[in-house]
Design a protein around this nucleic acid. Sequence first.
DNA 1: TCCAGAAACTTGAACGATCCAATCCTGCCG
DNA 2: CGGCAGGATTGGATCGTTCAAGTTTCTGGA
Lengths: 330, 330
Amino acid sequence: MAEKVTIATVARHAQVSRQTVSNVLNAPHIVREETRQRVQEAIATLGYRVSQAARQMRTGRSRLIAVRIEPTRDGINGSVLDRFLHGLTETAEAAGYRALLYTAADAGAEIATYDDLLSAYDLDGFVLTGTDHGDPRTAWLADRSVPFVTFGRPWDDPDAHPWVDVDGAAGTAQATRHLLAAGHRRVGFIGWPAGSGVGDDRRAGWREALRAAGVDPTGLDREAVDGIAEGERLAADLLAAASPPTALVCASDSLALGVLRAARSCARALPVIGFDDTPVAAAVGLTSVSQPLHDAAARCVDLLTAVLDGPPRTPAPVLLQPSLVLRHTA
Amino acid sequence: MAEKVTIATVARHAQVSRQTVSNVLNAPHIVREETRQRVQEAIATLGYRVSQAARQMRTGRSRLIAVRIEPTRDGINGSVLDRFLHGLTETAEAAGYRALLYTAADAGAEIATYDDLLSAYDLDGFVLTGTDHGDPRTAWLADRSVPFVTFGRPWDDPDAHPWVDVDGAAGTAQATRHLLAAGHRRVGFIGWPAGSGVGDDRRAGWREALRAAGVDPTGLDREAVDGIAEGERLAADLLAAASPPTALVCASDSLALGVLRAARSCARALPVIGFDDTPVAAAVGLTSVSQPLHDAAARCVDLLTAVLDGPPRTPAPVLLQPSLVLRHTA
DNA sequence: TCCAGAAACTTGAACGATCCAATCCTGCCG
DNA sequence: CGGCAGGATTGGATCGTTCAAGTTTCTGGA
């Protein structure tokens, strides 16, 4: 049975002290080249791995990043988180960190979990998804100066903390312009009820694109909580109006799917564009706005490690551009 | 600034020794009730949390479980992993463990990651998904007697290690019987190429169900790698046969979706049933076999914690039953 | 040749929990 | 009332690393 390999084993093998081995690992520049090589060799020969637990106890850093895994609400949007998580894990590994999962029923429970993760596991940082106006979570973390990055803008103050986001308005605007370019004038929109940062942003993109083309958006949009049934209902409602839209942009693929159903049931050709480019969109041929999730996750890790390893300076936020994936429906 | 609360702080506050506090946490039954309560009170008052790092250093256990997050291959099947991960995280938290994510390009890289996670992070156990014949990963782990559970049977030896799985054959059999009950005789099957444990299992369920009903399955099935296009191609192929099937069971929702396209393009009513009950199935109204993923994940954690906390005995494997979710297509 | 100063390396202590062995109670029996 | 058994409690050592401070070695200039 092989002995456990510790820093002392390596030190003995390389004929140096423990501290020198530690320096080779954490501050290579202060060790003489020759010594450094001898130590590195010993590390390789013995297959030494630094014990995170011991390091963590001394430094208070765990090289662990926490991410919340949400229950799949709608089902359709599930894979969004999935792709994000994969990108996050991959980038974190490359930077020498690992991703830890946690769940929480609501913001209150989530804050309690922060407390637990911080004091019991010495977590280094958090990646939050889906921020909204006056988010209590970011306030709590900022109060305690815990490093964190959000995927989603802080809607109240863009300089509140580091963040990464996808320009939703640019996405819906692009979708709207695509339909305008195809000859449509009355391009409608189905989105979420006013008040949510993400929802308002996506609606604004559509509105501005129409205005820029000289079309009055009044009466061309509807509000609905997410879901296929809601999308279907509101599409029917819009189509029954005095001067109905001839094409639609939606705030999500779920809503767009509902629109497709409504269009089918009244046997009318109605171009429609969804949002998120979910597998469902790919499967049914729905044109959709695609978010660069893998990239977004990577940038989240970049910002977080910048805060953790670099100087105590808030790094600049990142706003990524979505792209329009053209399929049959528009 | 509040002092850091350690076990010594609690001991002082409750007027006992460090060891007594430790006993309250790790072996409550050997502490007098009155003392126990006083300590618990001090813990609550001070908001003490046991430092995982310190505990881990002494005991060699991290209370961390690793799960691999795979890149979304097909896209459609992404949400399967998503739901599994959520259930896993939730159950692990309840049992006092946390889930750590990792990625790996192939089995070799995955094994290298095991080594790293074990020696650097002192991981307690692994949950593997998607096992296959002669899996090198399980062999490596078993060799080193690292605790692990697989979601997916060990196809070579059912007693090799603890596992949780969903009875795929029962699922396809149920789907087949459903179609038989609706009056169909020639129920076809589109599945994956022979050789994969999961794929062969699902095909066997269909075959046996047909045989039990006195129908000869010969010529009624096709093999394809997963994907919508493949499903469409093989459905067309089957329908062009001398005596084509009047209904189809598929090994995945992707394949079933392809079948739907093929049926539409030759304007024929063709009942079809998919597998996995993905969001896509829900969205397009595809009848599908649903796996109890949340439950499966929970059972994985149960087995793993049984190995970790209980006696050194291999717990009995768990085989869960899938259910048929009826929608428009069958 | 000598010494100041820097660079390279070594030693002791500490992080916060658990394990071990020794001591202190407490109640009970003779 | 003394002694004893058994459980409850205590102090000291320990896990593997990094920090802080101390010691040796090296370099170059007078």
